[in-house]
């Protein structure tokens, strides 16, 4: 709100400057890449293809299938996997985290199990996931789900556990019963940490996605990356990497936008 004091033009200018800087940094990066591959020829194309070769590959694969589908097909499959995996994980992690934070008995029962399972890297589950769910959608969803599940669970739990006790006391002395306190105080107060947990979770989920697709898949961006390596076509790997990067960036932007919407009540400085 205090930002209004600077006037919209001022803000706009800052914003424009920021955009210009970000854009030039991306272009600069691509230019350096162009310089060391095409112009100076420092690195053979077999190790690092030039940017225009990569862009051409991206363009070409939009129309010509790699494996079973075109580029959009692979992006779509990866997107589906991450969406399903994330959705299931969030539906389990958030309620469980809230309940564990609220009921001490459940906390005592669950914590030992979670503390043992949590440090296991999600990709260590790949063999079991394939055994249990085959090499279709199921195993990828499972791996991604594990990646998303634990950070979200832990953050939700912390969010509930560390609500400022003074707020709970205030609610109680205003006549709120336990269920009212949970709904009106605990839940809203823990939203910032829950959202932060989802953000970490989805980041980890993307890594799990690629790992799972590299090991056991015939589609998806991880598969493209792996295929590029197998066929000595690094431009294909880089294509997959760029698209994963863009997907991650979009996911992060989306979550940040959601965060801004739901955490409107925090001081601007705290909001980052």
């Amino acid at each position: 709100m205090s930002m209004k004091a600077f006037g919209p033009q001022f803000l706009e200018r800052i914003y424009r400057e920021k955009v210009v800087l970000s854009l030039s940094s991306v272009l600069g990066f691509i230019f350096c890449w162009y310089l060391i591959t095409d112009v100076l020829g420092l690195i053979p194309a077999l190790f690092l293809p030039s940017p225009e070769k990569v862009f051409f590959t991206i363009y070409e694969k939009i129309f010509i299938p790699v494996g079973q589908s075109t580029l959009f097909g692979h992006v779509g499959v990866s997107l589906l996997r991450i969406l399903v995996g994330t959705t299931i994980a969030l539906c389990l992690a958030i309620p469980l985290g809230i309940l564990m934070g609220w009921y001490e008995d459940l906390d005592s029962v669950m914590t030992p199990i979670i503390e043992v399972l949590r440090p296991i890297p999600p990709i260590a589950w790949i063999p079991l996931a394939i055994l249990w769910f085959g090499i279709g959608l199921g195993s990828k969803v499972f791996i991604i789900g594990i990646g998303v599940f634990f950070p979200t669970l832990i953050n939700t739990y912390m969010g509930v556990k560390f609500v400022d006790p003074i707020l709970i006391k205030a609610a109680q002395t205003l006549g709120a019963k336990d269920k009212d306190v949970l709904r009106e105080v605990i839940l809203p107060a823990s939203v910032p940490l829950i959202v932060a947990g989802i953000r970490i979770g989805i980041g980890l989920g993307m890594m799990c996605l690629v790992a799972a697709e590299m090991v056991a898949a015939s589609s998806g961006l991880g598969f493209l990356i792996m295929l590029g390596g197998d066929n000595l076509k690094p431009e294909l790997s880089i294509t997959g990497m760029i698209l994963i990067g863009i997907m991650g960036l979009l996911a992060d932007t989306l979550i940040l936008a959601v965060e801004k919407k739901v955490v409107y009540w925090k001081k601007e400085s705290q909001n980052g």
């Binding site: 400022d164 006391k169 609610a171 006549g175 009106e184 105080v185 939203v191 409107y264």
Partner: peptide, 16 residues
């Protein structure tokens, strides 16, 4: 109880 209202030193307003 709501019969004994409290004003806390730290305000304790619900920020949301």
């Amino acid at each position: 109880s709501a019969e004994r209202g409290v004003v806390f030193q730290q305000f304790a307003l619900f920020p949301w």
